[in-house]
Each structure stands twice: as structure tokens, then as C-alpha cells.
Design a protein around this nucleic acid. Structure first.
Lengths: 220, 220
DNA sequence: CGCGATATTGACCACTTGGTCATTATAAGA
DNA sequence: TCTTATAATGACCAAGTGGTCAATATCGCG
């Protein structure tokens, strides 16, 4: 409308410096593959970026190389280091620790690129998923199970959580993650009140899990 | 080794009557697509079945038609009608009802075709998933939330469950389903003791959820 | 055994895919 | 303004895709 009129040439090719272009490609690819899965085509992606598909191969030698970069971008940079000490921090009540961790965690992963790419990868058997899961087990599931052992008073005071405590801990994790699945995999409308949801779920967990553990240890 | 020697001709083509062949195809396609996703090729599937890919198109006009049939086979026939009355059955204690339902339900869906196909479909935005989810909400989540309302004693005695009760009920469902996801999507080794797992999870739910609901209704 | 209905196949088509490369246009520096 | 290094492209390739169809081999029936 404004100054399209006279001789203002608009170049048919946008020539960016390689850094910016590469960043643009990785960003675009993250969104694209999250949407359509890794069977999406390079041509499609290029069209969406407004460039030729040949250019993609100038920046990434193969499609797999691009996908690797997408994985890096989405996963490797999204673990907040402050979470590491959080769950073991004895100065905070467990409820508070859990609420803080899962609020932050859910905020970090509750987005389409993360959830969909993770699930796509799981289905495809990409090993990054299994590595990620064992990280979760080590950093989250096990510590929580240990705390649970203390609360449950089953004599499992040590650093080795019981099978049941682990399963209960996985349960909490699953509940939280399932919210993100419903939202981004099933495309269902779910609450946006992350804080409220986590508070509710954690409260239920702390109310129920230790009690069950007690029941199990003393008679049935 | 035995009678391959002399004139015992083995035909290069196996000629089956259409019913059997069709059944074989649908069965094979269910497993195949569950494994590799719906981007798997008709030629690949045919090879796995030991037939030519042209034959597939004699039985199903298009690939989508085959996929539809696969969906039917996996989902439509797996809802056990006896579950329908189960959750509302006032003559059984709620714990018993929940254990029975979720044991049966988990046994029905905890298999690769079901879980993987369902998730593949969700990612692809197939509407069968959303229909299925609303069925779950109507037949499982809502009834359980209503029972929860009674136990929580929040005055929500009626048939309209509160938002919080619904969320807690979804939580239970998510925990259970997450077991199947870990097993069949992430490929992680998890317990095979379905009964035990359900008993533990239901116990935790009934110990925790009503308590939380009470806390929420009387002062915070 | 021989025949015929038809289940099954191989060859084929148009199109899409990941990937290559010589050619072209752009923006910065002189 | 002209040059030039190089970002970006279009045309191309071989392999794979869903889908078609005339030819062929199998099995049941007489």
C-alpha cells in the first residue's frame, strides 16, 4: 500500500549471512517437523521458509543432520540447571520442592515442539528418548521416591528406593506429562493454569502415596 | 528336509479365498503400521505378507481405505461392554470398581498396535482420537469424578462433577495410560504385573484425591 | 485328468523424495 | 559506480511412492 509504487526494487533473493540463515532454518525446521513428523519433506520445509530446498543442503549435508540439530535445539538446552539441587534440598518442605520443580518443568516442556518431537522420536525408536528417560529417572523419579520412602516410614530410609516408591513416583510424573500429551498430541482443550494443576496433583500425590506405602509395609 | 526331494511341487502363488486373504492383510497391516507408522509403504507391507503390492489394491482401493480398516479393527472392537455399567455399580465399593475397570482396560489396550496406533493417530490429528477421548471422558472420567465428589463431601452430590474432581480423575487415567506409553512408545522395560500396578495406583488415588478435594472445599 | 473362474502377479505410469551441481544474482567493499 | 566473493537458485538424477491393468498361474469342479 505504502511505497510499493515506483522504482523500489525488492530483490527476489534475500541474501543473509550464514549464521542468521542457519538459525532461521533450524528454528523453522523445529516447528515444521514437530507439526508433520520427521517424514515431512525438505522441499515442503524450504517452501515454508521461503527458500529453495537446495539451500537446505548447503547448510546441512543430509536431512538427518538437520534433524539432529533440531533435536539438540529442542532437548539439550531445556534442562534448567537450578532443578538439579532442588529436589534434594532439605531446607524446603517436599510439597514446595515438588510444586516448584513440576511447575518449572511443565512450563519448559509444555509446548508443541517439545512434546510432539519427543513422542515422534519415541515412536521412531530414536535413542535420545531412552537416554532422556534415564536422566529423568536419575534426577527426578529416584530422588522423589527416596523422599517418599522417608515419609512412608517403611524403614527404607536409605538412598535406595523401593520398587513401589519408584512406581508411585513415575505415576506423578506420568500424570503431569499426560496433561501435555492431551494438549499437544490429542489436541484437546485442557487447563492453562499450570500452577493450579501442579498444586492439585502434588497435593493428591503427597496425600495418597505415603499412605499407600504405609499400608503396604504394615500388614496388607 | 523331509519330502522336498522329488516331484512335490510347491506353488509359487498361494491362492486363498478372498475372506482369508483380506483377514490376513488387515492383521498384517495392523502390526506393520503400528511398528513403522502410517508412512510405511504398501510395497513394504506386501513384502512382509509375502504377496505383491498390487494385490493389496485389489482388496483395498486406496491406502487410506486400508488404514481405515486397521483403525476399525484396533479400536472399535476393543471396548468391553461389561465396563459400561461397572463404574456406576453402587453395589461394589469404589476401590473394587476402579481396580476391575482399570485392570481390564489396561489389559485391553496395553499392546503395541493399540498404543502406538493411537498415538500415531493423535499426532496426525485423526479425528478418531478426539472421538475416543470424549468417549473416555463420558464413560470413565466423568463417572469417577462424580463418585469422587460424593467421597470428597464438597456438596457436589449431584451428577455434575467439579472441575477439580474431573482433573483428578484425568490424573488417574493418565497415570495408568502412561505405563503403556513407557512400555510401547519409549520402549522402556516396565512391570508386567498389571494387577499390582493398578491396585497400587488406585489405592493412591483413593487415599489422595478425596482428601485433596476436602482440603479445597473447606478453607484452603 | 482337463477346464475355467478368478486370485495373483509383473510391468508400467505419474509423481515425490533426498541429494547434486553448474549457473545466477546479491550486497558489501573499492 | 563497478567488482567480486559467495548466498541462493533451477534443472537434474536415481530411487521410491501410490495406483493401474493386461497377463498368468492356481485351485475346485465336472
Amino acid at each position: 500500500m505504502s511505497d510499493e509504487s515506483a522504482g523500489s526494487r525488492k530483490p527476489k533473493r534475500k541474501r543473509l549471512d550464514p549464521q542468521t540463515r542457519e538459525e532461521e532454518i533450524v528454528e523453522g525446521a523445529s516447528l515444521y517437523f514437530a507439526e508433520v513428523g520427521f517424514d515431512g519433506s525438505m522441499r515442503d520445509l524450504a517452501a515454508r521458509l521461503g527458500i529453495s530446498h537446495a539451500l537446505l543442503f548447503r547448510y546441512f549435508p543430509t536431512k538427518d543432520a538437520l534433524i539432529d540439530r533440531v533435536y539438540d535445539r529442542i532437548f539439550l538446552s531445556r534442562w534448567d540447571p537450578t532443578w538439579d539441587g532442588l529436589l534434594d534440598d532439605g531446607t524446603l518442605p517436599l510439597a514446595e520442592r515438588l510444586k516448584r520443580f513440576y511447575s518449572g518443568y511443565l512450563r519448559a516442556i509444555d509446548r508443541p515442539e517439545w512434546v510432539r518431537t519427543f513422542i515422534y522420536g519415541g515412536l521412531a525408536g530414536i535413542n535420545i528418548n531412552q537416554r532422556y528417560l534415564s536422566l529423568i529417572k536419575r534426577k527426578v523419579i529416584a530422588p522423589v521416591a527416596v523422599e517418599l520412602g522417608k515419609l512412608g516410614g517403611t524403614g527404607h530410609g536409605g538412598a535406595v528406593p523401593s520398587e513401589e516408591a519408584l512406581e508411585l513416583s513415575w505415576g506423578l510424573h506420568g500424570e503431569v506429562f499426560y496433561l501435555a500429551i492431551r494438549r499437544w498430541v490429542y489436541g484437546v482443550k485442557v487447563t492453562t493454569d499450570v500452577e493450579g494443576f501442579v498444586a492439585l496433583t502434588v497435593a493428591k500425590f503427597l496425600e495418597g502415596a505415603p499412605a499407600v506405602l504405609k499400608m503396604r509395609s504394615r500388614g496388607r
